[in-house]
Design a binder for these strands. Structure first.
Length: 272
DNA sequence: AGTACCACCTGACGGC
DNA sequence: TGCCGTCAGGTGGTAC
């Protein structure tokens, strides 16, 4: 479930448990997971070394090694980074295991195997190479408004475009739009500056809340859509029905009453 | 610069 | 129980 709040959680757990501990073994259980490096190179880069720093940018996690190199991890649609004090228990869908000194293991898991791990020299260069936009939570209001405002097409696609803004995926774009009262198909060019400013504040609030809830929908604040993100579910705001619609090839969930389409004349979305 | 579709992968779930 | 279609929070490539 890795959008930005999930990856932020992996980072926090990594820092709490795995930082500065010597890596005593490297077990790669899924060779294709590794891109641009051999299993031997990975082994050599990590074995007997320590992670000394970590960074997150959008959905990417960068783990800095004491040699100055970095492990860059992307989690695809079904990956996670898990830590446990015990090193002997088996972990479902584990693809890479790092056993740490004093016991404990760090596991990169991936059910659908869509994620990738890479060895890199410089996260900033990697971010530029991938043409990732600024991190969705670090960005300033003005830059958000400029970048989103410059897009065309649906506001949902704009929020999800990683080159515009890094970190927001299908789930959180739906949540932001629900909290904003915007229909996901709303064309960006129909949003006034005021609506863009509001969209910025809502984006920050939603991401912040998700991180505080440890990316667990059960702990999201009341009135959030995510725990009710199923076709036919009851809208947590108005009691209406949650609808599903394909937008940009992705399933979008929204409440027709709380997020009405802009009528052809009006330029300002109105909350019901 | 958009959208639409395919590909990469594996698994969970509902219907019959 | 088994088979089948559909869906799933990702990115990247192609064609239009």
């Amino acid at each position: 479930m890795p959008e930005f709040p999930d990856v932020e959680l992996y980072k926090q757990r990594f820092e709490a448990h795995a930082l500065h501990r010597r890596i005593e073994s490297v077990v790669l259980r899924d060779r294709p997971l590794l891109s641009g490096a051999s299993a031997q190179a990975l082994q050599k880069a990590l074995l007997a070394h320590r992670f000394v720093i970590s960074k997150r940018h959008g959905k990417y996690l960068f783990l800095g090694i004491d040699t100055g190199r970095w492990l860059a991890a992307h989690f695809g649609m079904s990956g996670a980074l898990e830590y446990a004090d015990s090193e002997d228990e088996s972990v479902q869908y584990e693809r890479l295991r790092l056993v740490l000194e004093h016991g404990g293991r760090l596991s990169y898991t991936s059910r659908r195997r869509l994620g990738r791990i890479t060895l890199i020299d410089d996260p900033q260069a990697f971010i530029e190479e991938k043409r990732l936009g600024p991190d969705a939570l670090g960005i300033a209001a003005r830059e958000f408004e400029i970048r989103i405002g410059a897009k065309r097409g649906s506001v949902k696609s704009a929020l999800m475009d990683q080159t515009t803004l890094a970190g927001i995926g299908n789930i959180y774009s739906d949540e932001v739009l629900f909290q904003s009262g915007l229909h996901p198909r709303t064309p960006v060019e129909r949003l006034e500056k005021k609506s863009l400013a509001q969209l910025y504040r809502t984006t920050q609030r939603v991401l912040q809340a998700a991180v505080e809830a440890e990316a667990d929908p059960h702990h999201f604040p009341d009135g959030f859509l995510t725990p009710h993100r199923r076709e036919g579910a009851v809208c947590p705001r108005c009691g209406g029905t949650v609808k599903r619609m394909q937008i940009g090839g992705r399933s979008s969930y929204f409440c027709e009453r709380c997020q009405p389409p802009l009528s052809s004349g009006s330029r300002r979305p109105e909350r019901v």
